[in-house]
């Protein structure tokens, strides 16, 4: 029997991105972001999560999915990180998706640039691809000055 895994799906621009449910701590929306001047470009700001200071990383900018429309209200997907404080800014959070390992495909060799570094592969869902986010790679690269 094929092994099954659960992914929290979210919409980032045109992409459907999956993050393993074990890595997700919670989802909040409407949190006010405090901008951090001179921060790396992928950092959108800081948010106050019940007294903890959490760094918000813009997944749109990370995945080069274009700028978010100004009136959009992004959702914070808080990661269960060791140092406790990273949130991914996404457009919308979808359902938890159960996938079969059989449906997994490595990223195509023609995929280049940032996406290539951050996407571990894709699950072929009905009519859509669920891109698996390599959160570790994302956290590592977003400390740098990439824009």
């Amino acid at each position: 029997m094929a092994e099954q895994r659960q992914y929290a799906s979210c919409v980032v621009g045109d992409l459907l991105v999956g993050i393993r449910v074990e890595e997700v701590q919670e989802v909040t929306s409407g949190a006010e972001l405090t901008p951090v001047p001179l921060a790396p470009p992928l950092v959108s700001g800081l948010l106050n999560l019940r007294g903890h200071i959490v760094t918000a990383i813009d997944l749109r900018r990370s995945l080069q999915a274009g700028d978010r429309p100004p009136d959009a209200r992004p959702v914070n997907l808080i990661l269960r990180a060791d140092d406790g404080g990273v949130s991914l800014l996404v457009d919308q959070v979808g359902d938890v998706v159960e996938v079969d390992n059989d449906d997994f495909a490595a990223p195509p060799p023609t995929l280049r640039g940032r996406l290539r570094e951050l996407i571990a592969g894709a699950y072929k869902l009905d009519g859509k691809l669920l891109l698996v986010l390599d959160t570790e790679a994302l956290l590592a690269c977003s400390t740098g000055q990439l824009s």
Partner: peptide, 8 residues
């Protein structure tokens, strides 16, 4: 601060 902004 978190590690992404600690370097400032």
């Amino acid at each position: 601060l978190g590690r992404h902004v600690r370097g400032i």
